[in-house]
Design a protein around this nucleic acid. Structure first.
Length: 296
DNA sequence: TTCGGAAGGA
DNA sequence: TCCTTCCGAA
């Protein structure tokens, strides 16, 4: 990588959210395109931002519909994305073009009529393991080391992921909660909730998503902090240490910048960025705020 | 504001 | 393959 960025260790989730056996699917990272490292994808980055309460003013889940989110500050999201990817020229126009490529992949949809509002297609984006109690998927059972609390959370998150999708399909759908409930009561082996054993062509194995990735609940659920998956012991740091910015940024996001920025971006070696004086925006000093005038 | 084609980079 | 960049059209 030309800019010398060091991708964050895997998975690129806050350590407290990650547990063994719970991770983004492999295809969430471009392992193939960059051997030895895995580069974050835009949808993953969006999820990361949505996951962090500090960015609520920038991007947030849209209340009222699962998976729908609104970019409140497109320029800021683009700036964060550009800094994560060491692309200081990034703007919302380019970022949105990348988002539009997700339309065909059915990872993302545009909410028409709502500005800067998109909706994740979780059924495509998120893989949910087969239920832990489903004997038909023995290979996908949670590791026995997982604590009970965690297993319960996994089950809950599984339901939270599947049910909104199923509700939209109507009560006759085999995964509809009403049907599931009957199955749960009347059968020892309820139907698989959309795991890879149901759609192996669509979901990779051995991947599941913890709660913080989910949109906030409509009614009953507490905000994210109450539904964090806690590993049995503090995991190793999964994110690089916060880069030591040259000077504090009183008007910026000093608290959250390390997360959003990811690795530190050294100045470009080959191609100077036209319009940026000496590549100052990506130099070793504090990041340049595009809203501020450039130094002469 | 949003969309999507086209070219190109890594 | 996944963007990044540019651009014309709606």
């Amino acid at each position: 990588m030309q800019c010398g960025c060091v991708p964050p260790p895997l998975p690129a989730l806050p350590g407290s959210y990650w547990v063994p056996g719970l991770a983004f699917p492999d295809w969430a990272y471009k392992a193939e395109s960059s051997p030895g490292s895995r580069q974050i994808q835009l949808w993953h980055f969006i999820l990361e931002l949505l996951q962090k309460e500090e960015f609520r003013h920038v991007i947030a889940w849209q209340q009222g519909e699962y998976g729908e989110f609104v970019i409140k500050d497109p320029d800021e999201v683009a700036r964060l994305w550009g800094r994560r990817k060491c692309k200081p020229q990034m703007n919302y126009d380019k970022l949105s073009r990348a988002l539009r490529y997700y339309y065909n992949k059915r990872i993302l949809h545009k909410t028409k009529g709502k500005r800067f509002t998109y909706r994740f297609n979780f059924s495509k984006l998120i893989f949910v393991n087969c239920p832990l109690w489903d004997a038909r998927c023995p290979a996908l059972l949670a590791p026995p080391t997982l604590p009970t609390q965690l297993v319960q959370n996994v089950v809950l998150s599984r339901r939270a992921l599947v049910e909104p999708l199923v509700w939209a399909r109507g009560p006759r759908h085999p995964l509809h909660p009403e049907v599931l409930e009957k199955s749960r009561l009347g059968s020892a082996s309820p139907p698989c909730l959309g795991g890879s054993c149901c759609h192996p062509e669509e979901f990779p194995p051995l991947a599941a998503f913890p709660h913080p990735l989910l949109p906030p609940p409509l009614r009953d659920w507490a905000p994210f902090p109450g539904h964090v998956l806690h590993p049995p012991r503090p995991p190793l740091p999964l994110l690089p240490p916060p880069p030591q910015l040259g000077t504090p940024n009183p008007g910026g996001l000093p608290k959250t910048e390390p997360f959003a920025l990811g690795p530190h971006c050294p100045p470009p070696q080959k191609k100077p960025f036209p319009g940026l004086l000496g590549g100052s925006a990506v130099s070793g000093g504090p990041p340049h705020d595009p809203k501020l005038p450039l130094a002469p």
